[in-house]
């Protein structure tokens, strides 16, 4: 908001005696796009919060099935966490590269991000498949229902993120660092960082609290 003091118009604004701070006009497209996406992310986080709430309510309802401490493997979770953290870092590097229009570092950063995301997904998928194979699928108990939904919802977001990431790499390859492509890269980076924040909640509340209890 530009600070233009226009005391001359004060008569039209009876509540401000003296100095009126004038709104400078519509924001640039980059700000508009990123802000809209920011609002979307907040709504997405509200959606996650419902699954967190459901997990909090249902985590004790094991219906004779396994408890969290019996099925969680901290080693896997630690690897997943490190993968996502590093991918958040490389995603940041890729967005810096995009800002300075450096294709090589952009591709490198995005590829590493993609690989780390895929490793995360593979570990998660194997954990799920293993649980289902042992008869601890989501229909075993309300606790497992909530667990699979919350973690799976995050996993689905990561999968969508990987798909988006690959689409963005293809777009940079085909169109270069155009203004609209740069805006999308910025949104993607926001998305990826936000997923990491959600994951912090997931590993703390689900895995660590679950195995501590």
């Amino acid at each position: 908001m530009a600070m233009t003091a226009t005391a001359g118009h004060a008569h039209a604004d009876p509540h401000h005696i003296g100095v009126v701070i004038e709104h400078p006009g519509p924001a640039s497209k980059r700000i508009v796009t990123a802000y809209g996406f920011w609002i979307f992310l907040l709504s997405d986080i509200v959606m996650f919060s419902c699954f967190f709430a459901a997990y909090a309510v249902l985590s004790g309802q094991t219906a004779g099935g396994p408890k969290g401490s019996e099925i969680f493997e901290q080693r896997n979770v630690a690897i997943e966490t490190v993968c996502l953290l590093l991918s958040s870092f490389t995603c940041g590097m890729a967005s810096i590269a995009a800002d300075v229009r450096n294709r090589f570092w952009f591709y490198l950063g995005m590829t590493v991000t993609c690989v780390l995301g895929l490793i995360f997904l593979v570990i998660e998928f194997r954990e799920f498949a293993d649980l289902v194979a042992r008869g601890y699928g989501p229909s075993r108990s309300a606790f497992l229902t909530a667990f699979f939904s919350l973690v799976g919802c995050h996993g689905l977001h990561v999968s969508a993120g990987v798909l988006w990431l690959l689409t963005m790499m293809a777009q940079v390859f085909a169109k270069g660092f155009r203004a609209d492509v740069l805006r999308r890269i910025m949104c993607f980076a926001l998305f990826w960082h936000a997923l990491d924040i959600v994951w912090v909640g997931v590993f703390s509340v689900v895995y660590l609290l679950g195995s501590a209890a």
Binding site: A2, A27, I31, A34, F37, W38
Partner: peptide, 11 residues
């Protein structure tokens, strides 16, 4: 419009 007084999220 001047952008130096308003930042996009993540910027």
């Amino acid at each position: 419009a001047p952008t130096d007084h308003d930042l996009a999220p993540g910027e």
